[in-house]
């Protein structure tokens, strides 16, 4: 895994897709290619109420990514400094094997350039000291990005708070 973690608080997400738009306009992508995507799950009836979730699906930046091992040209790479999995556009020939290899559907096809696009946590922005594009304009602030060690802390705190809230409290 990369040393970063992109956390989505699914309870806060309202499925506005602003993250997708931010991502696509930052990468200047045509129709079709969505390096990150909000997937709606549900609605499902839970305790007599319809409920649905919006799941943020970027790339997981796997520890041993199949897309990297399948890429015949060496275009798909893992950055050694921080573990970000990215495509070197110069090397990509558009064979799409990474798309077939990924079990999560993360690499995306750009029909305009004939090359693959994928979430690279906006590494150019990170290198400039900025956050990934999707995070910056998240309407509800449900997306947070940081180092993996800090993010587990955030998640723990949130979970603790949720558990301790009065509505959900068991006492």
């Amino acid at each position: 895994m990369s040393k970063y973690y992109l956390f989505q608080d699914t309870r806060t997400c309202i499925g506005c897709h602003a993250c997708e738009i931010q991502c696509k306009s930052n990468k200047n992508l045509p129709r079709g290619a969505k390096p990150c995507q909000i997937i709606q799950v549900g609605p499902k009836m839970i305790n007599g109420l319809p409920k649905m979730s919006f799941i943020f699906m970027p790339c997981y930046h796997c520890e041993d990514p199949w897309c990297v091992s399948t890429c015949p040209t060496g275009a798909m790479q893992k950055r050694s400094s921080d573990g970000i999995v990215f495509v070197d556009k110069e090397l990509c020939v558009g064979c799409k094997t990474c798309i077939s290899a990924c079990p999560w559907g993360a690499p995306q096809w750009n029909p305009e350039t004939g090359k693959v696009e994928k979430c690279d946590y906006c590494k150019d922005r990170l290198d400039a000291g900025l956050k990934p594009a999707c995070v910056t304009l998240c309407t509800t602030g449900c997306l947070t990005f940081g180092l993996a060690e800090d993010m587990t802390q955030t998640r723990r705190v949130r979970h603790a708070e949720a558990s301790a809230s009065f509505e959900n409290s068991s006492f």
Binding site: Q37, I39, V41, I55, M57, I99, C102, P103, W104, G105, A106, P107, Q108
Partner: peptide, 9 residues
């Protein structure tokens, strides 16, 4: 690809 994403979500 799309169905894989949906499935993992």
């Amino acid at each position: 690809n799309d169905c894989l994403r949906l499935l993992s979500a």
